[in-house]
Amino acid sequence: MIREGSIHIPFTYAAGRAASRFLVVLRDEGRILGSPCPACRRVLCPARSFCPRCGEETGEPVVVDPAGTVVSFTETAAGVFGLVRPDGADTAMLHRLLPAGAKWTIGARVRARLLPERTGSITDIEGFEPLEATEDHA
């Protein structure tokens, strides 16, 4: 015999000091923050409180560029996802690449596309789109 069951438990996740600041600045100012590690000197993006490599508490967040470089990408049934290293950062963010039907290459230049109405979530960045497309819009 089989008993069907499911688990529905709402959770609240505290983002922590640095990630909260990242989300607030993204929502209110439309800017992307990274965290500098005082030990390895890398700027970690998205911002976080500790360097995963050194274990050091990170310093005052810095603004990184909304433009960046595609480090890798993958097409899935849920869309195209890429690792994008924003200019001024030393690590990459995993996010959507837009539009899904575009021909992507490693090294492509992209820029973050932000939602006009933002709520304080990583999805306030709708995704990263080719830099030429954003220049066309400008």
Partner: peptide
């Protein structure tokens, strides 16, 4: 915070 809202899983990252 940064990955779950995107709907990615292990196979996405393997790709």
């Amino acid at each position: 915070i940064f990955l779950q809202p995107l709907g990615v899983n292990f196979s996405t990252i393997a790709g």
